[in-house]
Design a protein around this nucleic acid. Structure first.
Lengths: 235, 235
DNA sequence: CGCCGTATTGAGCGCTCTCAAGCTAGGTGG
DNA sequence: CCACCTAGCTTGAGAGCGCTCAATACGGCG
């Protein structure tokens, strides 16, 4: 399948803010100390591990999460190709979440001290870094939306914005499980499933197991902003 | 009242990461372009305003928010004395939220370009900045907790951690309205009110209108992590 | 082909919302 | 100084959305 191959080969180096500093992670890179290949479910780091590196995702996807006393997982964030994770650990000097790959994933390891040192000599790097961080603050602002419909449609739209080089920009690679989405949005996995089914029934999208094609972008945006999603329930 | 005076006079310059660069916002400061006094409800910036400054809160508190199509407000974040806001605007070059003071507030204006330039000559500033940003990523990770009890107790505990120089560290200045707290946590204002009342009845805290004294920190932490808050309902 | 994790779908319950009615506190003017 | 006035808070009753539990279907992988 052409799609599958494309997904696997898709590398986001040209979207990565470090691209001009890493020389494609060559041994002599001043910034990147190496690459790491992770299979699905493999751990990148664990809660309370000592902080030393940031990670730039070259391909694949990673989730950060907590497990509560009852074994219930709560997702803190998803990270897609081209994005950077690990910032949360800076002020604590350890990682406050665990991180595992949710697909086969390649990450570039960025020693924090090296990054800091490089910034003083390269002001443009600093600008890129702050811009990237800035973007992160806009993620997931919809997780407290009053209805499940709003949360899920906003989530799908955000994913489609973040997914780099989508050949058709409306085709989504839903690499995380329904349970993960639910945990991220504060909803049950069954609720995610039900809403997706209903959205499909109403021609807003098409589900192909792990892939989703968004048909009515406009309507979804309308729902995300609560265009009478509560009252009408026509979707 | 001693408490009231303390609250008003409380300035967080010694907690501010910029403190050694601002010379108390003297005219010749290399970083801070000036101070701004805001009365309660006064606007600091509005959605879509062009980005130019970050703001460090010297005293008081600010909320950032969105108003949806139906006029419903949704709070993005609260910022307390000693904290910095405006980061979200960097990558868009405009502010993605509106910001208004929720008490009488003093902020220091930090021109972003000046900050960027200063960083290249002062690596320690960079380190402080990234540490401060790092901390921000941990805020509000509880807003998708399954029960309202969990969300609210986690919120109160976070506030008590963030509130600088609390003379008695368990006495909270709840400067935002119940409605604001609700909008932040994805709950109705009535729910906030009900839970606070119940917590008070069960000796977890004492409500004095806008001030709250946390009595049983341990129990609240237990609830925040869902120590049988669902099943028991003994609180 | 058969297995197991994941997803879907259904039924019933419960938490939280909505709507509505008092209540409280702080500010204003006489 | 006090009565009023208004915004915010509290409390109650009923409805509904999303959760839980459970059964079934799907799909990837051996």
């Amino acid at each position: 399948m052409a799609i599958k191959e494309l997904t696997q080969e898709k590398s986001s180096c040209h979207h990565c803010i470090f691209t001009s500093f890493c020389q494609r992670a060559a041994p002599a890179s001043p910034l990147v100390s190496g690459r790491q290949l992770l299979k699905r479910r493999e751990s990148l780091y664990s809660y309370r591990d000592a902080f030393s590196h940031l990670y730039a995702i070259k391909s694949g996807a990673v989730k950060t999460f907590h497990v509560d006393l009852e074994g219930q997982e709560s997702i803190h964030q998803f990270y897609l190709a081209g994005e950077i994770l690990g910032f949360e650990a800076i002020y604590l000097n350890h990682y406050p979440f665990s991180a595992i790959a949710i697909t086969n994933t390649t990450v570039c390891r960025i020693p924090y001290e090296r990054l800091i040192n490089l910034i003083s000599s390269r002001p443009d790097l600093n600008r890129h870094l702050l811009t990237s961080i800035s973007q992160r603050f806009s993620f997931g602002q919809y997780v407290t939306a009053p209805t499940a419909d709003q949360r899920l449609s906003a989530f799908l739209l955000e994913l489609s914005r973040r997914q780099p080089d989508c050949n058709t920009p409306i085709e989504l690679d839903l690499c995380m499980s329904r349970q993960d989405i639910g945990n991220y949005l504060g909803l049950a996995a069954e609720t995610i499933s039900r809403i997706l089914s209903r959205f499909q029934k109403n021609r807003l999208l098409v589900i192909k197991s792990k892939k989703i094609k968004l048909l009515d972008h406009t309507q979804l945006q309308w729902i995300a902003q609560d265009g009478l999603a509560k009252s009408g329930s026509i979707y």
